[in-house]
Design a protein around this nucleic acid. Structure first.
Length: 480
RNA sequence: CGGGGCGUGGCUCAGCCUGGUAGAGCACCGCGUUUGGGACGCGGGGGUCGUGGGUUCAAAUCCCUCCGCCCCGACCA
């Protein structure tokens, strides 16, 4: 009988999430530092794999990594009007250092547009210096009023890309390239999380941006999670920080800049997309341990025999599979099965004396819990079988998540339908309202326009709120 | 930041109302028996009761302060 360590999703989805984070040993709430978490080895190993997948894509698309200071002069933050208004309430300041009051306080970076803008202004002279394509991996701090592990923490780790271009078209192309080729590609191929690529409304866009694009994912409670954003900053920051270049005809022009980021929030998205009441479920491509081997024996003689067989079996795995042999002898096999299921390991191989005699092993799939996910297979060709199964699981998780999203998405044609649909998932509606209309809907329903999908059907319909004719459809949902 | 709940061995909690020797289960340590879906017996260790102050002969318990966590709301990657 399973112990009651994870609250079922149906009973309390929030508690379920916190239970998974704790029981899978990914992170611990730092309680001595408000709103912060400690990444434990399992959680950090997962993040390292995610970082690798993102970093590869960032570099493949022509960007180089750099690193800017953690502290930003307070006056920098004040330079771009919308930006100040957006971030002022949540910045932490450093006012003393070296035992003395500072002449000008620093803020702990909530994001780095401003300090990077300052340096871009110094570095960019001519159109030949463009485009400038940099990225940095760093931690940032936003003094959030309500925090949850991974989803919203006061300090979080992310990458922030910052680029400068000669024309609006170039900046726009960059913004979209990141959205499609880096973020959406990573989410769907590596995380197995289907995402909607969309444009943010004026109300939801980044403070200081011209346009914000995003990828939005659906969690298992039907709520939306913004998994990544890419902003075309127009010339707003270029004007505030005097980022200019001389063009081919010797005229000084303002640059067009972009910024884009994804954070450790992605870990929250991963958990809430795939995991079940038994614990964490990880997609094979990001699982720090893809295969765990549990040896079974009753005495020393069997132990030696089984471990020898396991040694032969796993000899060729290095470099092909991330695996672990769980040879702890103070736990029973049954305990280990449950523990590794809780931790989300995609495949488990069980090897006992009977298997050694018959040349077989038992293989259990994490994505299919219980007896149905378990089968007896020959030791011969095991490695290829495991590799094949990992691919199958990866694809299966994506398909399952996609099917879930589709089952919980509906086109609505009236405000009443909208109110009902957002209780269970995404509501797609024609939209021609204003920011004020949007705010009113949020107050009345607690749902917001998550995005205007970039894939539009192009058909004509009537706006769900104003009744006006429009071809634009949007996604309404309650969001994290 | 507003409303609500909570803070007691590592974890989950009882004890608080009605002040008087700090408890249970799980986990941990030792020994033995066990091991194909969360083993069992015997023995053992471990707690300034979140913090600071107050009331009292006496505070986990009553009062005040601060800190943190969880839930709801507003704000947000």
């Amino acid at each position: 009988m399973p112990k009651d360590v994870i609250t079922p999703r149906a009973r309390d989805y929030n508690q379920w999430y916190l239970d998974i984070v704790r029981e899978a040993d990914m992170a611990e709430v730092a309680e001595v530092v408000r709103g912060c978490i400690v990444f434990k080895p399992t959680g950090w190993a997962l993040w390292e794999l995610m970082q690798r997948g993102l970093d590869e894509r960032i570099k493949e698309t022509g960007h180089a990594n750099v690193q800017f200071p953690l502290l930003i002069p307070k006056s920098f933050i004040m330079k771009e009007a919308e930006h100040v208004a957006g971030f002022a309430p949540e910045v932490a300041e450093v006012t003393r250092a070296g035992g003395e009051e500072l002449a000008e306080p620093y803020v702990i970076r909530p994001t780095s547009e401003t300090i990077i803008g300052h340096f871009y202004s110094k570095w960019i002279r001519s159109y030949r210096d463009l485009p400038l394509l940099y990225n940095q991996w760093c931690n940032v701090m936003r003094w959030e009023l309500r925090t949850r592990p991974f989803l919203r923490t006061a300090e979080f780790i992310w990458q922030e890309g910052h680029t400068a271009h000669a024309t609006e078209e170039d900046a726009e192309a960059e913004t979209l390239k990141i959205l499609y080729d880096v973020y959406a590609d990573f989410a769907e191929k590596e995380m197995a999380v289907p995402v909607i690529r969309g444009l943010k409304t004026e109300k939801e866009k980044f403070p200081g941006a011209l346009r914000s694009y995003c990828i939005e994912a659906m969690m298992q409670d039907g709520r939306a999670l913004q998994a990544g954003t890419s902003h075309n900053l127009g010339q707003n920051f270029a004007r505030a920080f005097d980022i200019t270049y001389t063009d081919q005809s010797n005229t000084v022009q303002y640059c067009w800049t972009t910024s884009w980021g994804v954070s450790t929030r992605l870990i929250g998205a991963l958990i809430m997309t795939h995991s079940d009441d038994e614990g964490l479920v990880l997609p094979p491509r990001l699982a720090p341990i893809q295969v765990v081997v549990v040896p079974i024996y009753k005495n020393d003689e069997e132990r030696v025999r089984v471990l020898e067989a396991v040694g032969r079996m796993t000899a060729g795995w290095k470099g092909r599979l991330r695996f672990k042999v769980d040879d702890r002898d103070n736990f029973t096999p049954g305990f280990k099965y449950n523990e590794w299921e809780l931790k989300g390991v995609p495949l488990r191989v069980e090897v006992g004396p009977r298997d050694v005699d018959k040349g077989s092993v038992a293989v259990a799939r994490r994505d299919i819990p219980g007896r149905e996910g378990k089968s007896i297979v020959p030791q011969e060709g095991l490695t290829e079988r495991l590799l094949g199964l990992l691919d199958e699981i990866q694809a299966g998780l994506f398909q399952r998540a996609l099917a879930f999203r589709e089952a919980h998405t509906a086109v609505v044609s009236s405000y009443e339908e909208l109110k009902q649909q957002i209780e269970r998932g995404f509501a797609i509606a024609y939209w021609d309202g204003s920011s004020e209309d949007e705010k009113r809907i949020q107050e009345e329903t607690r749902a917001t326009i998550r995005c205007i999908p970039l894939d539009q059907p192009g058909t004509v319909g009537t706006c769900v709120y104003t009744g006006r004719e429009t071809t634009r459809q949007v996604v309404f949902a309650r969001a994290y």
